[in-house]
Design a protein around this nucleic acid. Structure first.
Length: 709
DNA sequence: AGCACGCCGACT
DNA sequence: GTCGGCGTGCTC
């Protein structure tokens, strides 16, 4: 009988086990290392996180601490340990073979749970405790949140070592600064109260819709300074080096030198490590930097802030691709710190933080917004059709007039689309994006001319627009770059400056000039631009992305925020349909309202961030096997898999793309709100099982995939 | 990942 | 008897 067989099998297993135990000698409470080398008297067991190497299942390994390493082998230090099934000489427990791997001591304990002889720590690489308990638990939370391995996250969080820098002493900690004045925070009804709460040592959480203009950097600096004044630390994460330099300058103006550091990519590795160590050692308590700074081990963290969370550079490029906003949210929760998310726009995630009550909105009153924001006017299709001049010159009359008038008073910004975007299919008549009838994913044209859903792959035959009944689709591309050049020729007396991907200008003088820039590369003009022309409306709105509207609005607001207020004559012209929601939000300067409506719609359609999504990509068999194996949380929705676009010429390579020449598929898994953690855990488990069993090719996992059409 | 172990068939 | 295939499991 099968039960009999089972019993026999168990018995055999027991016998095998007891034989093995006999061979390995009886379990011992205290570790005994090879040749009875002397062990540390107290806490002779080190719990080690092995950093690189094979599929460690995110577990800790116990090692013996030799007496001579007792002093240095403190929690948090980097060590080298022998790891791997080497040749074991059972008689005296000596081990040979097995590779030396890097790791971190996480803890020192009296006894090991491990029933067997412990190997000894081979070397303490440095006595510097670089992985403290706070940083470790943050990294663990990030790994869990993103279905990634702890080792991957540690690689993002702990910079590589430079022995020479460690030998230098860090500067002495300066006394906390005085509580800063509220300054331009007074422009917000609750601004002063927010600052006072920080200075008092409270942990206020806010989503801040910043007024247009240059004050935001100063305001971030004041908030950080208020946290420092409460004897706590502060961390400010911004999207790029230019923004970081502005906050850095504001902090220096407020606090002088020595109370904060700037951590950005363009600091060399050694200087960067010097600054990181100063933070880790607690001699500097404030950090401003780009996304890698999100892990900076600030002591007694009292305040975290992120500027412009909608900017895609807040997404880490390396596995498991955590987003700075999410990491700072975890930090604020774990370390009970204040939280400030600021932007000219408002991401849907930010709106959700307000909706759930986790953060309070911090915004100016309507009247003040109207005063400091430029006057925004639109040019839609109807206007263009009626506009003879526009058809001839491919630029609407209103834009000409606005540029001409603006150039009499100062510089004029022209925002043009960047090359390399793929427009999304939309109804030709009403421009409603074409969506799948089954799962509401975006429709895409395949080579054969058929229409398919980009999420679930269902073919859409006989498509009709649900809004207006139209049956024709369009994916138009406008040549606005050329238009900008033409504009330059039309004003020969005026200098033309360009700022784009490879050549980004930081500032331009306040004298008349045409400044042509791609989104995100707009220079700041001294005294503000007199006017701005936003020529990329259609192109931005038709990016094949769920966030196209939000993203278009974000970029328009970022450009328009550099323009003088309407009371000072500031004017903006946007070439886009005035009936579209993001366009209306720009005209009314109401980003928060836009985000709230967008959030409601996402909720209705079951889109992220209201639902949570993950993508699973890899060779078709691997994706199928993975999905069959994974024990997804109840109610999980699997969309697809669909073929992934191979890396092709003409489109910039994206991180999610299949390797060249390989045919990959991608499935999306969607769960209800609140099930994100369970989804991540299920995916991580399935991945671990497949990797240890070596079942087929591994799949690539991505939580919150950014490019879901 | 390596590297052992172990349980099978084919050989000097 | 002994050598060696690779399937399974462990690495402190």
């Amino acid at each position: 009988m099968s039960s009999n067989n089972d019993a026999q099998g168990e018995q055999l297993a027991l016998i095998r086990e007891s034989v093995r135990k006999a061979k390995a000698k009886a379990p011992r409470a205290k570790p005994r290392t090879w040749r009875g080398a002397e062990l540390a008297g107290r806490l002779p067991v080190a719990r080690v996180l092995v950093d690189k190497g094979p599929v460690h299942l995110d577990k800790l390994w116990d090692y013996a601490v030799p007496a001579e390493l007792d002093e240095d082998a403190r929690p948090g230090v980097r060590v080298r340990v022998r790891f791997g099934a080497g040749t074991r000489n059972v008689r005296d427990g000596r081990r040979e073979g097995g590779g030396l791997l890097d790791g971190f001591i996480v803890d020192r304990v009296e006894e090991s749970e491990y029933r067997g002889p412990l190997a000894a720590i081979a070397q303490v690489l440095s006595p510097e405790p670089v992985l403290g308990p706070r940083l470790l638990s943050l990294c663990r939370a990030v790994a869990d949140r993103y279905a990634g391995s702890l080792a991957d996250v540690l690689q993002l969080a702990v910079p590589p070592r430079h022995a020479r820098i460690e030998a230098e002493p860090s500067p002495a900690l300066l006394p906390p600064p005085k509580v800063p004045a509220a300054g331009s925070w007074e422009r917000y009804p609750t601004g002063r109260a927010y600052l006072e709460a920080l200075a008092r040592g409270d942990a206020p959480r806010a989503v801040w819709t910043a007024l247009p203009g240059p004050h935001w950097a100063e305001e971030l600096a004041r908030a950080a300074a208020a946290a420092l004044a409460s004897r706590r630390g502060a961390l400010v994460v911004v999207p790029d080096g230019r923004a970081a330099a502005r906050v850095d300058a504001a902090l220096t103006g407020l606090l002088g030198e020595g109370r904060h550091v700037l951590l950005t990519a363009d600091t060399g590795p050694e200087e960067r490590y010097r600054r990181w160590l100063a933070v880790s050692r607690g001699s500097v308590r404030a950090v401003v930097g780009t996304r890698a700074a999100m892990f900076a081990p600030v002591r007694d963290l009292g305040f975290v802030a992120i500027w412009d969370d909608g900017d895609s550079s807040h997404s880490e490029q390396h596995a498991p691709q955590p987003h700075a906003r999410e990491v700072l949210l975890l930090r604020a929760a774990q370390e009970k710190a204040a939280f400030l998310l600021g932007a000219f726009g408002c991401s849907v995630e930010a709106a959700q933080l307000v909706r759930t009550g986790w953060a309070l909105p911090l915004a100016a009153e309507r009247e003040r917004i109207r005063a400091v924001a430029p006057l925004v006017r639109t040019v839609g299709d109807g206007d263009l059709a009626r506009d003879e001049a526009a058809r001839a010159a491919r630029l609407p009359s209103l834009a000409w007039q606005t540029a001409r008038e603006g150039l009499r008073h100062g510089p004029v910004l022209v925002q043009v689309p960047r090359r390399g975007y793929v427009p999304r299919l939309a109804c030709e008549r009403c421009r409603e994006p074409a969506r799948c009838g089954h799962c509401a994913g975006p429709l895409e044209a395949r080579d054969g001319g058929t229409l398919h859903c980009g999420w679930c792959g269902t073919e859409a035959r006989d498509w009709h627009c649900p809004e207006c009944g139209g049956a024709r689709l369009r994916a138009q591309v406008v040549g606005a770059r050329r238009t900008a050049e033409e504009l330059g020729r039309a004003f020969p007396a005026v200098p033309v400056r360009t700022s784009g991907r490879d050549h980004v200008l930081d500032t331009v003088p306040g004298t008349p000039a045409l400044v042509v820039a791609t989104p995100g590369a707009e220079p700041v003009a001294e005294g503000g631009y007199a006017a701005a022309l936003l020529l990329d409306g259609w192109a931005l709105l038709n990016l094949p992305d769920l966030r196209a509207g939000e993203e278009a609005l974000r970029r328009w607001l970022a450009a328009a925020a550099l323009v003088r207020g309407q009371e000072a004559g500031g004017r903006v012209v946007v070439v886009a349909e005035p009936t579209l929601r993001p366009v209306q939000a720009l005209v009314r300067w109401d980003p928060a309202g836009h985000a709230v409506r967008e959030l409601a719609e996402r909720e209705e359609l079951g889109f992220p961030p209201v639902s949570r999504m993950a993508s699973v990509s890899g060779p078709p068999e691997a994706v199928a096997e993975f999905l069959a194996l994974a024990e997804l949380p109840p109610g999980a929705d699997v969309l697809g898999p669909v073929p992934l676009p191979a890396a092709v010429a003409g489109r910039p390579r994206r991180p999610g793309d299949a390797p060249v020449g390989e045919r990959w598929e991608r499935a999306l898994v969607r769960v209800r709100p609140g099930r994100g953690a369970a989804l991540a855990a299920a995916l991580k488990t399935a991945q671990a099982v497949r990797l240890t069993r070596r079942e087929g090719a591994p799949v690539r996992l991505r939580m919150d995939p950014p490019d879901i059409g």
